[in-house]
Design a protein around this nucleic acid. Structure first.
Lengths: 88, 88
DNA sequence: TTGTCATGCAAGTGGGTACTTGCGTATCGT
DNA sequence: ACGATACGCAAGTACCCACTTGCATGACAA
């Protein structure tokens, strides 16, 4: 599962994880606005959407769909692969 | 220091960290041969050298020079930035 | 239904990066 | 000194990846 490391390689994706940790269950637009206002990022909607796909493929983000909304939840358990690998 | 995440993004660099954890203080040629024989990698000397530069810039590898030999030691302390960031 | 909102899909583009290639430098043994 | 060893530097290449662009789909409100 090298996907976890690839997912963490991008600063925008790390900011997304930070945001979801502070407030889980955000939609795509919520994340976009908060990334701009609170993290100083200028990512477009499509860019954030693709980042979320990468994070979900890595198992770091889980999604649940309700109507036309899609909520995103943080899952830090894949990070255990890092701590286990080099004994932290 | 996003350099730590970038350094971990490459599978060859992660294998180098594994090797240095198992046997610290290896030279460039030692690493090359053991990466090929034990990890099934086919990286050239220059490739491994450049990977070591990246790892050293990230603070994950420290070097000490003795004559014409350069020994490489593992330092996992920068990985604390990951565990501290998302509370593991 | 009509319009709007929230999201998804896919091809194209630009910049970054891993790797090669070739030469150069310093150290050690003989 | 001479050759061999261990490593460094720098330009070129090919590939990957983040981002854009444009259109499409599904859900809710009026």
């Amino acid at each position: 599962m090298g996907d976890v490391f690839k997912a963490l390689a991008d600063p925008t994706r790390r900011a997304i994880l930070d945001e979801l940790q502070e407030r889980t269950g955000q939609t795509l637009f919520e994340l976009c606005t908060r990334l701009i206002t609170k993290h100083g990022l200028t990512s477009s909607r499509q860019a954030v959407s693709q980042h979320l796909d990468v994070l979900e493929a890595a198992g770091l983000v889980r999604t649940r769909r309700e109507g036309r909304y899609k909520f995103h939840d943080l899952d830090t358990s894949p990070l255990r692969t890092i701590t286990d690998r080099w004994r932290l």
